[in-house]
Protein backbone atom coordinates (compact mmCIF):
# COMPACT_ATOMS: atom_id res chain seq x y z
CA UNK A 1 0.00 0.00 0.00
CA UNK A 2 2.70 2.49 0.98
CA UNK A 3 4.84 1.68 -2.02
CA UNK A 4 1.76 2.15 -4.20
CA UNK A 5 1.05 5.54 -2.62
CA UNK A 6 4.68 6.50 -2.93
CA UNK A 7 4.65 5.58 -6.61
CA UNK A 8 1.42 7.49 -7.13
CA UNK A 9 3.06 10.50 -5.55
CA UNK A 10 5.68 10.62 -8.27
CA UNK A 11 4.42 12.75 -11.17
CA UNK A 12 5.42 10.21 -13.79
CA UNK A 13 3.47 7.33 -12.28
CA UNK A 14 0.56 9.58 -11.48
CA UNK A 15 0.38 10.57 -15.13
CA UNK A 16 0.37 6.95 -16.29
CA UNK A 17 -2.07 5.56 -13.70
CA UNK A 18 -4.54 8.45 -13.95
CA UNK A 19 -4.58 8.09 -17.72
CA UNK A 20 -5.80 4.52 -17.35
CA UNK A 21 -8.43 5.47 -14.76
CA UNK A 22 -9.99 8.40 -16.63
CA UNK A 23 -12.24 6.57 -19.13
CA UNK A 24 -13.71 4.40 -16.35
CA UNK A 25 -14.36 7.38 -14.13
CA UNK A 26 -15.94 9.37 -16.95
CA UNK A 27 -18.32 6.58 -17.96
CA UNK A 28 -19.35 5.81 -14.38
CA UNK A 29 -20.04 9.51 -13.83
CA UNK A 30 -22.17 9.71 -16.98
CA UNK A 31 -24.16 6.60 -16.06
CA UNK A 32 -24.80 7.73 -12.48
CA UNK A 33 -25.84 11.17 -13.64
CA UNK A 34 -28.22 9.74 -16.24
CA UNK A 35 -29.79 7.45 -13.62
CA UNK A 36 -30.04 10.29 -11.09
CA UNK A 37 -31.63 12.65 -13.61
CA UNK A 38 -34.14 10.04 -14.75
CA UNK A 39 -35.05 9.22 -11.16
CA UNK A 40 -35.23 12.86 -10.14
CA UNK A 41 -36.99 14.42 -13.10
CA UNK A 42 -39.22 11.55 -14.25
CA UNK A 43 -39.77 8.91 -11.56
CA UNK A 44 -39.92 10.99 -8.36
CA UNK A 45 -43.40 12.38 -7.55
CA UNK A 46 -43.99 16.13 -7.05
CA UNK A 47 -43.51 17.45 -3.52
CA UNK A 48 -46.72 17.91 -1.53
CA UNK A 49 -45.76 21.47 -0.51
CA UNK A 50 -43.46 22.73 -3.24
CA UNK A 51 -44.94 21.00 -6.28
CA UNK A 52 -42.51 20.48 -9.16
CA UNK A 53 -40.17 23.31 -8.15
CA UNK A 54 -38.42 21.10 -5.58
CA UNK A 55 -36.75 19.19 -8.44
CA UNK A 56 -34.01 21.82 -8.33
CA UNK A 57 -32.87 19.95 -5.20
CA UNK A 58 -31.22 17.26 -7.36
CA UNK A 59 -28.57 19.72 -8.54
CA UNK A 60 -28.69 22.27 -5.74
CA UNK A 61 -27.89 19.97 -2.84
CA UNK A 62 -25.10 17.97 -4.59
CA UNK A 63 -23.52 21.28 -5.70
CA UNK A 64 -23.71 22.70 -2.19
CA UNK A 65 -22.23 19.54 -0.66
CA UNK A 66 -19.44 19.55 -3.24
CA UNK A 67 -18.70 23.24 -2.64
CA UNK A 68 -17.79 22.31 0.96
CA UNK A 69 -16.16 18.95 0.16
CA UNK A 70 -13.87 20.38 -2.53
CA UNK A 71 -12.84 23.19 -0.20
CA UNK A 72 -11.78 20.76 2.51
CA UNK A 73 -9.85 18.67 -0.03
CA UNK A 74 -8.21 21.80 -1.44
CA UNK A 75 -7.18 23.06 2.02
CA UNK A 76 -5.93 19.60 3.06
CA UNK A 77 -3.92 19.18 -0.15
CA UNK A 78 -2.56 22.68 0.34
CA UNK A 79 -1.48 21.80 3.89
CA UNK A 80 0.24 18.61 2.68
CA UNK A 81 2.07 20.61 0.03
CA UNK A 82 3.01 23.25 2.60
CA UNK A 83 4.39 20.80 5.16
CA UNK A 84 5.85 17.92 3.13
CA UNK A 85 6.61 19.78 -0.10
CA UNK A 86 4.83 17.16 -2.19
CA UNK A 87 4.45 18.55 -5.70
CA UNK A 88 1.40 16.49 -6.52
CA UNK A 89 -0.47 17.89 -3.49
CA UNK A 90 0.15 21.43 -4.79
CA UNK A 91 -1.14 20.36 -8.18
CA UNK A 92 -4.31 18.86 -6.67
CA UNK A 93 -4.97 21.99 -4.60
CA UNK A 94 -4.53 24.25 -7.62
CA UNK A 95 -6.74 22.08 -9.83
CA UNK A 96 -9.49 21.94 -7.17
CA UNK A 97 -10.02 25.70 -6.94
CA UNK A 98 -11.86 26.32 -10.24
CA UNK A 99 -13.99 23.20 -9.68
CA UNK A 100 -14.91 24.26 -6.17
CA UNK A 101 -15.76 27.73 -7.44
CA UNK A 102 -17.99 26.17 -10.10
CA UNK A 103 -19.89 24.08 -7.55
CA UNK A 104 -20.29 27.08 -5.25
CA UNK A 105 -21.55 29.18 -8.15
CA UNK A 106 -24.04 26.44 -9.07
CA UNK A 107 -25.24 26.11 -5.48
CA UNK A 108 -25.84 29.88 -5.32
CA UNK A 109 -27.55 30.18 -8.70
CA UNK A 110 -29.77 27.09 -8.38
CA UNK A 111 -30.62 28.11 -4.81
CA UNK A 112 -31.57 31.55 -6.05
CA UNK A 113 -33.78 30.05 -8.78
CA UNK A 114 -35.42 27.91 -6.13
CA UNK A 115 -35.79 30.78 -3.67
CA UNK A 116 -37.70 33.04 -6.06
CA UNK A 117 -40.82 30.84 -6.39
CA UNK A 118 -40.64 29.51 -2.80
CA UNK A 119 -39.54 32.51 -0.71
CA UNK A 120 -40.53 35.24 -3.17
CA UNK A 121 -36.98 36.54 -3.55
CA UNK A 122 -33.84 35.59 -5.48
CA UNK A 123 -31.51 36.71 -2.74
CA UNK A 124 -31.51 37.51 0.96
CA UNK A 125 -28.54 38.44 3.13
CA UNK A 126 -28.97 35.68 5.67
CA UNK A 127 -26.30 33.51 7.26
CA UNK A 128 -26.43 30.51 4.91
CA UNK A 129 -26.45 32.49 1.68
CA UNK A 130 -23.89 35.04 2.80
CA UNK A 131 -21.42 32.47 4.12
CA UNK A 132 -21.73 30.49 0.86
CA UNK A 133 -21.00 33.71 -1.06
CA UNK A 134 -17.91 34.23 1.12
CA UNK A 135 -16.87 30.69 0.10
CA UNK A 136 -17.07 31.70 -3.57
CA UNK A 137 -14.79 34.67 -2.89
CA UNK A 138 -12.34 32.41 -1.03
CA UNK A 139 -12.14 30.19 -4.13
CA UNK A 140 -11.63 33.31 -6.28
CA UNK A 141 -8.85 34.39 -3.93
CA UNK A 142 -7.05 31.05 -4.30
CA UNK A 143 -7.45 31.15 -8.10
CA UNK A 144 -6.25 34.75 -8.15
CA UNK A 145 -3.10 33.91 -6.21
CA UNK A 146 -2.30 31.08 -8.61
CA UNK A 147 -2.86 33.37 -11.59
CA UNK A 148 -0.96 36.34 -10.18
CA UNK A 149 2.20 34.71 -8.81
CA UNK A 150 4.60 33.54 -11.49
CA UNK A 151 6.59 31.07 -9.39
CA UNK A 152 4.41 27.99 -8.89
CA UNK A 153 5.89 27.04 -5.51
CA UNK A 154 5.32 30.50 -4.05
CA UNK A 155 1.82 30.64 -5.53
CA UNK A 156 0.95 27.25 -4.03
CA UNK A 157 2.24 28.28 -0.62
CA UNK A 158 0.31 31.56 -0.58
CA UNK A 159 -2.87 29.86 -1.83
CA UNK A 160 -2.55 27.11 0.79
CA UNK A 161 -2.30 29.64 3.61
CA UNK A 162 -5.39 31.49 2.36
CA UNK A 163 -7.28 28.20 1.95
CA UNK A 164 -6.36 27.08 5.48
CA UNK A 165 -7.46 30.37 7.03
CA UNK A 166 -10.73 30.12 5.12
CA UNK A 167 -11.51 26.70 6.62
CA UNK A 168 -13.27 28.47 9.53
CA UNK A 169 -16.01 29.31 7.07
CA UNK A 170 -16.87 25.64 6.46
CA UNK A 171 -18.54 24.86 9.84
CA UNK A 172 -20.16 28.29 9.71
CA UNK A 173 -21.85 27.38 6.42
CA UNK A 174 -22.86 23.95 7.64
CA UNK A 175 -24.37 25.05 10.95
CA UNK A 176 -25.66 28.45 9.79
CA UNK A 177 -29.20 27.14 9.43
CA UNK A 178 -29.18 26.00 13.05
CA UNK A 179 -27.28 28.88 14.67
CA UNK A 180 -29.20 31.75 13.11
CA UNK A 181 -32.80 32.11 12.07
CA UNK A 182 -32.86 31.96 8.32
CA UNK A 183 -35.12 31.56 5.33
CA UNK A 184 -33.11 28.54 4.26
CA UNK A 185 -34.70 25.26 5.26
CA UNK A 186 -32.89 23.03 7.74
CA UNK A 187 -30.96 19.92 6.75
CA UNK A 188 -33.07 17.30 5.02
CA UNK A 189 -30.70 14.37 4.64
CA UNK A 190 -27.84 14.78 7.12
CA UNK A 191 -29.93 14.67 10.27
CA UNK A 192 -29.17 12.25 13.05
CA UNK A 193 -32.61 10.67 12.96
CA UNK A 194 -34.17 9.34 9.79
CA UNK A 195 -33.96 11.75 6.83
CA UNK A 196 -37.19 13.66 6.28
CA UNK A 197 -37.39 12.82 2.61
CA UNK A 198 -39.12 9.99 0.80
CA UNK A 199 -37.05 7.19 -0.68
CA UNK A 200 -38.20 7.98 -4.23
CA UNK A 201 -36.56 11.40 -3.84
CA UNK A 202 -33.65 10.34 -1.65
CA UNK A 203 -32.32 7.71 -4.07
CA UNK A 204 -31.96 10.05 -7.09
CA UNK A 205 -30.53 12.72 -4.77
CA UNK A 206 -27.83 10.36 -3.53
CA UNK A 207 -27.17 9.14 -7.09
CA UNK A 208 -26.66 12.74 -8.19
CA UNK A 209 -24.44 13.42 -5.19
CA UNK A 210 -22.27 10.43 -6.08
CA UNK A 211 -22.23 11.48 -9.75
CA UNK A 212 -21.07 14.99 -8.77
CA UNK A 213 -18.35 13.50 -6.59
CA UNK A 214 -17.04 11.29 -9.40
CA UNK A 215 -17.35 14.21 -11.82
CA UNK A 216 -15.07 16.17 -9.50
CA UNK A 217 -12.52 13.34 -9.38
CA UNK A 218 -12.63 12.98 -13.18
CA UNK A 219 -12.11 16.66 -13.98
CA UNK A 220 -9.59 17.02 -11.14
CA UNK A 221 -7.47 14.27 -12.72
CA UNK A 222 -7.80 15.84 -16.17
CA UNK A 223 -6.64 19.21 -14.86
CA UNK A 224 -3.92 17.70 -12.69
CA UNK A 225 -2.46 15.72 -15.62
CA UNK A 226 -1.98 18.88 -17.68
CA UNK A 227 -0.57 20.70 -14.69
CA UNK A 228 1.91 17.85 -14.10
CA UNK A 229 3.05 17.86 -17.76
CA UNK A 230 3.47 21.62 -17.64
CA UNK A 231 5.49 21.63 -14.43
CA UNK A 232 7.63 18.66 -15.46
CA UNK A 233 8.11 19.71 -19.07
CA UNK A 234 11.91 19.73 -18.87
CA UNK A 235 12.16 16.29 -17.24
CA UNK A 236 13.29 13.23 -19.18
CA UNK A 237 9.98 11.36 -19.08
CA UNK A 238 7.92 14.25 -20.47
CA UNK A 239 10.48 14.76 -23.28
CA UNK A 240 10.23 11.08 -24.06
CA UNK A 241 6.43 11.30 -24.08
CA UNK A 242 6.52 14.35 -26.37
CA UNK A 243 8.86 12.60 -28.82
CA UNK A 244 6.52 9.63 -28.98
CA UNK A 245 3.53 11.64 -30.17
Amino acid sequence: MWTFLHKLGSPRHFYRISGGMLPWLAWTTALLMAAGLYGGLVLAPPDYQQGESYRIIFIHVPSAWMSLFVYVIMAAAGAVGLVWRIKLADVMAAASAPLGASFTFLALVTGSLWGKPMWGTYWVWDARLTSELVLLFLYFGVMGLHAAIEDKRTASRAAAVLALVGVVNIPIIHYSVEWWSTLHQGPTVTKFDAPSIHLSMLVPLLLMALAFKLYYVTVLLMRARSEVLERERSSAWVRELARGT
Binding site: S53, I56, H60, L99, F105, L106, L113, W114, Y215
Partner: peptide, 28 residues
Protein backbone atom coordinates in the same frame (compact mmCIF):
# COMPACT_ATOMS: atom_id res chain seq x y z
CA UNK B 1 -44.23 22.63 -18.03
CA UNK B 2 -43.04 21.48 -14.55
CA UNK B 3 -46.30 22.44 -12.88
CA UNK B 4 -45.78 26.12 -13.77
CA UNK B 5 -42.21 26.22 -12.47
CA UNK B 6 -40.67 25.56 -15.90
CA UNK B 7 -38.62 28.77 -15.93
CA UNK B 8 -37.00 28.14 -12.53
CA UNK B 9 -36.45 24.40 -12.92
CA UNK B 10 -35.07 24.48 -16.47
CA UNK B 11 -32.95 27.58 -15.86
CA UNK B 12 -31.34 25.80 -12.91
CA UNK B 13 -30.69 22.66 -14.95
CA UNK B 14 -29.51 24.74 -17.93
CA UNK B 15 -26.95 26.66 -15.88
CA UNK B 16 -25.75 23.41 -14.32
CA UNK B 17 -25.33 21.83 -17.76
CA UNK B 18 -23.34 24.80 -19.09
CA UNK B 19 -21.04 24.94 -16.05
CA UNK B 20 -20.42 21.18 -15.94
CA UNK B 21 -19.73 20.91 -19.69
CA UNK B 22 -17.43 23.96 -19.67
CA UNK B 23 -15.44 22.42 -16.83
CA UNK B 24 -14.75 19.37 -19.01
CA UNK B 25 -14.15 21.16 -22.32
CA UNK B 26 -11.72 23.80 -21.03
CA UNK B 27 -9.20 21.32 -19.51
CA UNK B 28 -9.48 19.13 -22.64
Amino acid sequence: HMGGYAFYVWSAYGVALVVLVANVVVPM
